[in-house]
Structures are given as C-alpha cells and as structure tokens.
Nucleic acid binder design. Sequence first.
DNA 1: CTTCTGTATGCAAGCGCTTGCATTTTTGCT
DNA 2: AGCAAAAATGCAAGCGCTTGCATACAGAAG
Lengths: 349, 349
Amino acid sequence: MTEQNKVSLEAEAGVPTLEDVARASGVSTATVSRCLNEPERVTEQTRARVMEAVRSLGYAPNFSARALAAKRTGIFGAIVPTLENAIFAKGLQAFQEELARHGITLLVASSSYSPALEEEQVRALIARGADALLLIGHDRTPETYALLEQRQMPHIVAWAYDPSEARLSIGFDNRKAMKRLATEVLLRGHARLGVITAAVANNDRTRERVAGVRDAMAAQDLSPDDLRVVETPYGAETGARAFEEIMRSDPRPTAVLCANDVLAAGALAKARDLGLRVPDDVSVTGFDDTEIAQIVTPQLTSVRVPHWDMGQGAARLLVAWRSGERAKDSIELSTEVVLRGSLGAAPQE
Amino acid sequence: MTEQNKVSLEAEAGVPTLEDVARASGVSTATVSRCLNEPERVTEQTRARVMEAVRSLGYAPNFSARALAAKRTGIFGAIVPTLENAIFAKGLQAFQEELARHGITLLVASSSYSPALEEEQVRALIARGADALLLIGHDRTPETYALLEQRQMPHIVAWAYDPSEARLSIGFDNRKAMKRLATEVLLRGHARLGVITAAVANNDRTRERVAGVRDAMAAQDLSPDDLRVVETPYGAETGARAFEEIMRSDPRPTAVLCANDVLAAGALAKARDLGLRVPDDVSVTGFDDTEIAQIVTPQLTSVRVPHWDMGQGAARLLVAWRSGERAKDSIELSTEVVLRGSLGAAPQE
DNA sequence: CTTCTGTATGCAAGCGCTTGCATTTTTGCT
DNA sequence: AGCAAAAATGCAAGCGCTTGCATACAGAAG
C-alpha cells in the first residue's frame, strides 16, 4: 500500500490523529501538541496553520493517549451516597459546573451509604485515572484512606466540617448546626424531643446532628431520657412511620426534629393523619431547607445548608490542589436556622 | 543499575504496572493481561500465581493505557439538562447502578437546557473516550447528531418516546401521557384550563406535553382559546408566580396543569395565599409523581413516570449496543395518572 | 563575516496496556 | 510411544500523545 493510499484510507476511516494534523500542516507531531497545550511556545504563523488543519480535519485529541503520556486525565471523581437525595445532586451540579469551567469532567459513583462499596468505588475511580476525588463525610474505612494516601490522590471531604479531622474538608459543622436548631426548639418550651434520623452507622453527619441535639438539651439541663431517637431510611413514607412510632411513646415528645426535609414532610403528613395539629399539638423541623420546606403545610422550620458553595468550593480547592497548592485549612461554611410555621411553642399541658 | 535495584526502586516508587506483575509471577505481560480480561484463557494454576502477585503488589490496571490499547474506555457518558431536578438525578442513579454492574463508570455532564452547551459536552465526552452516551429528549442541534453519527457513538435518548423519531430511545410518550391527564381533568367538567410549563424551546418533552393538553381539549371540542399557557423556569417559587399570573386571566381557568410537581407545589402554595381552595375553587395537577406529590396538601394528582426503568433500561440497551447488538426498536414505557385530592370537579358557576 | 544567544521546531523514546500471530506445552487418540 | 489438534503462553508491534533533548535558524553582538 502506498503512502498515498494510506493517507486517504485513514482520512476515510474517520477519527483524525495528531499525526494527521501534523502531516496536513507540514509540522511535527510535537509542534502540534505544543500548539494545543502551550500555544505560546509556537510561532503565531505555524499556530495558525496548525489550527486551520485541526479545524478542517475536525481533530479532537484522544484523552486516553494524552492521559497515558501526560499522567493526568482531566477527570475528577465524586462518590456520593446516592443521587436520589436531591441535596447531593445539587451539590454535584455546582461541583460539575465549576469543573467544567476548568475543562475537567466529572466521573460519578455512588456508594449507597456502604463503606465497602465506597472503597471499591474509590479504587475504580483511581484506576480510571481520576486526578482528584470528592467524598462526602469523614466516615470511611481506614483502607480507603490508606489507598488515597498511597496514591497521593488529592481529595476533599464535603458536607462536613470537623476541625478535629486532619484532612481537607469543606462544609459545615453538623453538630453545631443541629444544636442551634434544637436550642431554638427548646427555647419555645419543649422539654421532650423526638429525633428522626437516617442511620448513624458509618455516617458522621447524622451522628453529629444527633449529638447536637443532645448538646442543646444538656445545655438546658434536660435529661437524655427526654430524647427519643428513631433511625429510618430516607423517604417521606419512612419518615411518616418513624413519626408514628415516636408519637406512640409515653410521654410523647412535643417536638420532633428530622434529619432532613423529606423525613420531616413525611412526619407532617402523618401528623395530619393522626389528627395532630402542627405546631399546636406537636412541632416538627426539617434540615437542608430544600424547596420542600416551603411547599408543605405548615412550612417547615429547617436549617439552610450551603450546598452550592460546598460543591463549588470543593471544586476550586481540588483544582488548586492538583496544581500543587493544597489549601492549608479546611473551610467552614455557615448554616442558618430558618424559622417557619412548623415550629411553635410547646403545648400547655 | 542492576535489575535488582531497578525492581526495588520501582516497587518503592509506587504504582505497579502490568510488567511488575508479570515479572513477579514469572510470566509475560500478555498472560497477565489475559488473566485479567479473559481468565478462561489461562490455566487455573498460572492464574492463581498471577492473581497472588496482583494482590501482593496491590496492582490496579491503568485505564488510560487500557483504553488506548483496547479502544474502549469502560466509561459511558450522560448529559442531562441539570441535576437540580430530582427527576434526572434519580434516573441517573438507576443508570449508574446498572452500569456499575457491568464495570462501567459514568461520566456526567449537564447542558443547562442549552443545545449549544450540550453539543460542547457531547464533544467533550467523545474526546474523553466515552463508549456510549445517554441523552435526554430528542431536541438538539443537527451538528450534535452529525457528530454522534460520524463517530458511530452508541447513544440513546431517554425521557421521551416518539415513534416518529428514528433514533433509539427509551421513555414514554409525553404527549399521550399529558393527554390522558388532561382528559381526566376535562371529565370533571373543567372547560377552561391553565398550563404552567418549563420553556418549550429546545425541549420536545415540554412541547409534547402542552400538545397533549391541546389534544385532549380538541377531543372534547373545546377551543384552544380556553387554554392559557405560561412558561416559567423550574422552581416552586416560579410556579407560584406563574399560577398567580394565570389566576389573573379573565375568565380564569378552573384547573391548572403543571409540567412537574415542583411547579405544581408552588401553584398550590400560591392558591392558598390567594385564598383559593384546592380543589373546590381550582384544581391543580403535577407531573412526575415525585415524593412531593404526596407531601403537599392537598396531595397532587400527578403522572407517575418510570424514572428508574428508563435509567436502568437505557443502561442495558447501551451495554448491548456496545457489544454490537443495537436494539431494533425504541422502548415505550408506560405512565400512569395518579388521582389525588388536588383534582376535583369544576366549581359550579 | 563570524560567533553567540535565544527561540522555534523536530526527533524519538516512552506512557502501560492489548492482541494477532508464532511458539511451546498439553491433551486425546491410535 | 507417537502424532495431530487444541490449549496455553510468549513476542512484539502498536494505540495517540507528551516531552527531554538535539538541532536549526533567527537576529544581536563583535
């Protein structure tokens, strides 16, 4: 086969390579590569010629090859518990948008709240050549952290801020946030509280939130016995059932704090079913301040969480870290208790 | 440097390669590669030896290299309008879980409902070596489709089913679904309708839904003049405003169909603010049947959409296509009108 | 006109893996 | 035991790109 033939056949076959561009513009592949990656190192004249060839051939770099040669993929990974929880999806959206701004793409994996699965996903993303990783919360197997360390993988923990943890994180102090909310509740005279939370095993966020409630109670000299905690999976339906369970306690709590707005919405619905008026008979609060909080009746008192800022901030920190500038300190973002109708004064007994 | 030194230095340096494994287990790199990819082509005995080496060295394949050599990345891409809409996030979750089952990872991009941005994202994902692509809806630039064609990229359109479109899709018939819902509404005596929808430009799903309402009205010999359509961005707040706008029409509609549950929830909230009772004074319906539908008061009549099945089905079809078996026909999944309290008989005039 | 700098470009060696083909070993028969 | 066929393994050529170093060539300086 003549060189001539070869060329035309290749052109026909489709996907042009660096070499095709080099040939078309009469320079070496090295120059083309530089044109694309360090334009300033190439004469304006050749650059124009090369770019023209790139355009006419419809050339697009092969990232696998680039990654192999340059040891950098331009891909960041994120492992979230689940995308079903809108909260993580929103954070990811922000993360993704910021990354896109830097020409980085997002590889997504979900752990279903399982540390083992998460470890597997971390392995997968590392193997896939992720340049950096976004993780949710601090709780995970030591093996996972060892892996991250060993591969010197830039990574950040979001959705949590815990100064006692050494690794880089961006988020809020779940404990403090929940303590503030609980304090608002106690201020209104409630003395027996219920908490509906997602599983606390392997989940520092939920654990901290429950601890926050305890903190608030302790500060008011209430006994831990006055707190009723029920764990349940995510969902409005499960929230409803958990609420019912709590309401069966004797004496029953006068306020129920839920770990997120969806659980709270379920609780609200169940309260209605049970003929309990909110907040007259019982107060209910949510967490996250999603749209749901304003949609339900009565509107939910909740805690506004900086999802967007966490996602975007995490992206920025990781981008910087990848270029060698690892931020010194974790970033604490603030939350805000948003008071709405679902929280009222404790009923007179 | 002696071979001995070299080995130990490499071990020290970290990331082991196929060659390290080959050396450690006394076979060729080809055998190791086969061990990992086509285990059945290797003796059990050697396999055991190789796997042992893999384990002790903590070897993990470099996917960039693999992709480069095998022309297959094991990465599928998905471009959704946004992750902020829980509906897409849920579908993606299903998609992702199914992919994970096949050892495939998910690259996510969002288009923010912009065809230009989407085209860019398609380019990016192709360059990134995605083996297949998941897209939402049929509307996009011809250039995007040309690109897909040219690169022979397996792709599927989800969230829509339109037999008149040639390309592979999995979803439901938005028009038919909405027509069914609208028919239910008309059956209850409503003769003037309002529709709150997301932008219809570049969005076949919303366009079809509005068309579905028109279909239903036409079937009952109602004039198009009796339909009031308002476009608005996604969000409860915007839904509320759109509802207010519609309620200012004279004569005002007695039922308002919303393109999704969030908009409907906003409408419901606004109705309350305006002192309108739902469904006595005005009926409201949603779409998607998310948890929100059951959370609000009154509960929303909505259309249940098979998000999970779409995500999972799309993954399956793409996996098959990648292996050469492109499904012949698009798949139509069914929806279901879920009647709840927000829809009632038209008020007596 | 030569020598020296500095900049633009080319050369070619990989990056770590897969895979077609060649070679060796094993298996099943006679 | 001897042979062909089948199975297992090895060889080595890439896959498309980046990048350290060598080379070429420009203009400045002598």
